[in-house]
Design a binder for these strands. Structure first.
Length: 421
RNA sequence: GUGGGAGUAGCUCAGCUGGCAGAGCACCGGGUUGUGGCCCCGGAGGUCGCGGGUUCAAGUCCCGUCUCUCACCCCA
């Protein structure tokens, strides 16, 4: 048997990889516009970071982490998400000393040991931002707007769902209320939800079992339990979003599967995807930094699942660079052709030539197939005359250009044709 | 962890009640002593996922196993 990639991981080949690059570049350009800077983090962390950061009761920690021991017997884990690592780096490097807020973006692979399916992989790429230090509703709004603009830039239609899960002051009261309600109605709940009633009652709100949905119709609404500060914060977030023409749908049953969220939580979803329809999600985490040993510091952020973005719109462009294919006619032209391609590359053009000893006809077919815009043809006559035949692959028009004038001619055609370099 | 579907050429798939392994696309070459797309001709490419069983004979039937895939759980 040939060796296969491990379960749930994927190779991204050209031209698919070019679509990825486009989407990633779009996100990076937006991050820079909003003044976020890249943080490059390790993919392994000590396991305890995730146990404490994500929450011992979450599915991620309980059953989805790739965990192993190093030689010293210390437990390491492949990161299942990035926020805990960003916060660890923020604390460890005393980043608050440089002045708040700190605005960071990251990208890279995350790892969760789940059964793969459409839009869900064991290694998957996330791109996310963290805005650390600001407690203002404007901060929540900023990251949500940034995320909304990203989907907008790619032409992907999404639905934004938003909620507030309260803070340390008001959430305990709500959890108490929902737990009481669930206990009173436990006869109608599925087995999982009875367990969740004890361990993490908020998660029952997410249950899709029809009986549970019905049983929840009369459940207490978190909106009614928010303290004045949380209610005001939430209202201001919504107002700011609307001012930026981002229109969230409020859903008081939206709870995320990670324990660190406080106040604002949100999710961008798309109907185009199947079961895993969440393209990105995030929220505020005002207590996480303190819980991981830092000074109390408010923060907010989100993460985008790039595989799902790529699935959501397969029409994202896969453009090849402006390129010149150098054709050699006859063996004695091979080396001059090679040197011409080399000199074009040194001048910053994208150039290629035949490395398979093909016939002139086959070289031309290759230039066409690979989508080159120009072909520079060298044969006996051209070598003798010090020129090349420059062919426009689209029109087929061909004219002789002195080698000394080639660079200028290519640039002229490039700017006239509006082709991307 | 649980359930459904599927494994035949690089890709998408056909292959009937068991009887010589196929098509389209893609790839390579030729039709043009130095020129692409359309068209025509030719070529290469397969352990029919793997292992066992039934049979004169298995891609086809039976058993096992692996992988992929979709869904549940959960999440990006």
């Amino acid at each position: 048997m040939v060796i296969r990639a491990p379960k749930g991981v994927a190779d991204i080949l050209p031209p698919e990889s070019e679509r990825w690059r486009h989407a990633q570049q779009t996100a990076i350009d937006l991050c820079r516009a909003y003044d976020y800077r890249e943080i490059i983090l390790p993919v392994i962390e000590y396991t305890e970071l995730f146990n404490r950061g994500i929450g011992q009761e979450t599915d991620i920690v309980q059953k989805e982490m790739f965990t192993f021991e190093d030689k010293g017997g210390r437990s390491l884990t492949l990161r299942p998400e990035a926020t805990a690592g960003v916060v660890r780096a923020f604390i460890q490097n005393h980043m608050e000393k440089g002045g708040l807020p700190i605005k960071l973006y990251y990208r890279g692979p995350m790892f969760r040991r789940e059964r793969p399916q459409a839009g869900r992989y064991r290694q998957f790429q996330q791109l996310g931002v963290e805005l650390i230090g600001s407690a203002l509703p404007l901060a929540d709004a900023e990251v949500i707007i940034l995320c909304a603009r990203f989907f907008c830039a790619l032409g992907i239609t999404t639905e934004l769902v938003i909620n507030s899960v309260g803070d340390d002051k008001c959430r305990p009261g709500y959890i108490e209320a929902i737990r009481n309600y669930l206990e009173d109605n436990s006869a109608e709940l599925c087995e999982d939800c009875r367990r969740r009633t004890r361990e993490n009652p908020l998660r029952v709100l997410d249950c899709k079992v029809p009986g549970c949905k019905e049983a929840l119709l009369g459940a207490p609404d978190i909106q009614a339990y928010l303290c004045d500060e949380c209610r005001d914060h939430f209202r201001q977030v919504e107002e700011t979003l609307e001012a930026a023409e981002v229109y969230p749908k409020r859903d008081s049953r939206l709870v995320r599967g990670i324990d660190y969220y406080t106040r604002t939580v949100f999710e961008f979803a798309t109907p185009a995807l199947g079961a895993q329809n969440s393209l990105s999600a995030g929220g505020r985490y005002d207590t996480l930094i303190e819980e991981l040993g830092g000074k109390p510091t408010p923060a907010t952020g989100f993460s985008i699942g790039m595989e799902r973005v790529m699935l959501a719109d397969p029409r994202l462009p896969e453009q090849r660079d402006f390129g010149i294919y150098v054709m050699a006619i006859g063996d004695e032209a091979r080396k001059p052709a090679f040197m011409l391609a080399q000199s074009l590359r040194d001048k910053g053009f994208s150039a290629d030539l035949d490395l398979m000893d093909r016939s002139p006809k086959a070289q031309m077919r290759e230039a066409d197939r690979m989508g080159f815009q120009l072909a520079a043809i060298i044969g006996k006559d051209e070598m003798a005359g010090g020129y090349v035949a420059l062919r426009d692959m689209k029109s087929g028009a061909q004219e002789n250009i002195q080698v000394a004038e080639l660079e200028g001619e290519i640039r002229r055609r490039h700017s006239a044709g509006g082709l991307g370099i």
